[in-house]
Amino acid sequence: MAFCQALSGNAAVALETRGLIAAQKALFEAFIQLLADAIDAKSPYTGGHCARVPELAQLLAAAACEARSGPYASFQLSEADWEALHLASWLHDCGKVTTPEYVVDKATKLETIYDRIHEVRMRFELLKSAAETDAWRAIAAGGDRQALQAELERIWAELDAEFAFVAECNLGGEFMAQERIDRLQAIARRQWRRTLDDRAGVSAEELRRRQRESQQPLPVGEPLLADRLHHRIERLPQQQLPADNPWGITMAEPELL
């Protein structure tokens, strides 16, 4: 009788443990799906992505397991492997939780907290205004008014076409043809005149990055578009993954953020 009681007690403990483990797994499953749903809800451009990837991952893995010839003929997943694949596919985008909104929800190439195409447009507006000022100065100095106005109209049309091209590039895909890159670089070499200090009123972090560049006396000619040293945001030591990380991650980190 005592033996039966002990045996039934052990069985009850085992069943309760299995129930607790199952409940813990269910809670974890619900948590990671909630996390994925929250990431999907952040962006109308990638909405549903986190939910679709697990479905596709399961289908691809199943197809590989069913292969009887070719490179996947011997490929099989154990029960533990299937569970790991399931969790990994649901968590593949979990890093977006800490990624800034303007990076996750990036609708154009120049968009950050705001779309910097507006800043580019203003530089074109400055060039058009400067061209008009130069034309009227030349007219006031006795130049041929009709010829100068015709030249001004030509310059305006050229600037309008160039801005339209830059704006189109901002909406483009991930790759550009070489001739479009060459044209963009040619447009970038145009100069606009800056008369105000570009270090005034900026954050301490941006000021630190700008101090890596030599400060030229004002006024100064600035390229219309440029990759500047202060645009390069370095990865700080605390943001780097140690070589002996416990997760076994071996992917090389980009030099810059």
Rank of each mutant, 00 (worst) to 15 (best):
V220Q: 09
E162W: 03
L224R: 03
T46E: 02
M176L: 15
R212M: 05
H230S: 10
A188W: 12
A57M: 05
D105R: 05
S78C: 08
Q76H: 12
A23Q: 07
R208Y: 08
R193E: 13
I155L: 13
A73K: 13
R18W: 09
D160G: 12
G173D: 11
I249V: 14
A57T: 01
Q216P: 04
A61N: 03
A84G: 00
H118I: 14
A62R: 13
A22W: 00
D227H: 02
P71Q: 12
N10E: 14
D134R: 15
C50R: 06
A22C: 00
L224F: 03
D182N: 14
N10C: 12
R154I: 01
A41W: 02
L15C: 09
W192L: 11
D40W: 03
Q178C: 02
A2N: 15
P71H: 11
V202F: 06
N10Y: 13
N10I: 06
R194K: 09
G70L: 08
L171F: 04
E132A: 13
F3A: 15
Y114L: 08
K128F: 03
I233A: 02
I21W: 01
S43K: 00
E132W: 03
D227K: 06
A12Y: 09
L257I: 13
R123P: 08
A6C: 14
C65T: 02
L241S: 02
N10Q: 12
E174I: 06
R208C: 02
C94G: 04
N245V: 03
T195E: 15
P246L: 05
Q24A: 07
L148Y: 10
L218H: 08
A51L: 07
V202I: 15
T112H: 10
I249A: 09
C65L: 03
L171Q: 06
Q146C: 12
G47C: 06
Q5S: 14
G173S: 11
M1W: 15
E79W: 00
E151W: 05
E111G: 02
I181H: 05
E168P: 01
E16W: 05
E162M: 12
P237L: 01
N170V: 01
Q240E: 04
R180Y: 10
A138P: 02
L56V: 03
D81Q: 07
E205D: 12
A6V: 14
W90C: 01
